[in-house]
Amino acid sequence: MTVIEVSKLHKRYGKRVAVEDISFTVNEGEIFGIVGPNGAGKTTTVECLIGLRKPTRGRIGVLGHDPQHEPGPVRERLGVQLQDGQLPDKLRVGEALELYASFYRSPADPAALLKELTLDQHRDHPYKKLSGGQKQRLSIALALVGNPKIAVFDELTTGLDPNGRRVTWKLIESVRDRGVTVVLVSHFMEEAERLCDRVAVIDGGRVIALDTPARLVAQAGKDSKNLDDAFLALTGRSIEEMEA
C-alpha cells in the first residue's frame, strides 16, 4: 500500500530550481531513503512533503492528504525529526515529551517512550545539559510521541560517534518493526545502505536513481562495492569525498 505519493514535485526560488520534477512513492512499512550530497534538494523535498514548504508545482499525497490543503491530518499522522532542531535550554526531557504528547489525539505513553530510548534517567535534565546522543534520542522520541504512521528523519546521525550511529540505526529498525513507515534523509551512504529497503538518489534537484541499495550497487558494475561507488558510477562524483 502506498503511503506517500510524490508526483513531479517542483520547487523554484526565483531563478534557482532546487527540486526539479521529482517523483517517487513510499510503501507502507518500508524504510525509504532519500540520499544525495548536501544541496541536492533532499531537505527541500522533505519540507514540501511535511507541509513546511509550498511547492511551485506538483502533487503530493501523504496518506491520501495534501500537506498544503489538508495540513491537519498530515501533521497528526506524521512524526518529524529535522536537522538543527533544538529545544529551549531549560526545558526538561520529560516536560518536552509530555508537552508534545499533548498535541496529538492518541499519543504514545511518554514514560514508556523514554524508557525505550534509554532517556528515563534523564527525565528531569534540561535540554542544555544533554549530550549529542541524548539530544538525538530525544529528537527521535519527539518524532514518535504522536504515534505516527510515518516518521521522517533528516540527517539523523550527523555529529554522532560510530557507536552512537549504530545505536540510532538499531532504533530506526525497531521503529520500522512496530509498523511505522520511515523516510530517511541522509548524505551518509553507509547509513542508507544499512537501513533502507529502497533508496531514491537525488543529485542537482533530480532523482537520478530509485531502487534497492543492493540493485543500485550491482548496476554500478563489478567494481562497485557500496552505495558511494554506485553514486560515483552514476555521477562521476563521490559523496564521501564531497562531504569529507
Binding site: V80, L82, Q86, L87
Partner: peptide, 16 residues
C-alpha cells in the same frame, strides 16, 4: 531565540 534554535520550525511539523 526559539526561532534561531528551530523550536518554532519543529512545532510547525506538529498539530500545534
Amino acid at each position: 531565540t526559539y526561532r534561531e534554535k528551530g523550536v518554532l520550525r519543529r512545532l510547525a511539523t506538529t498539530p500545534a
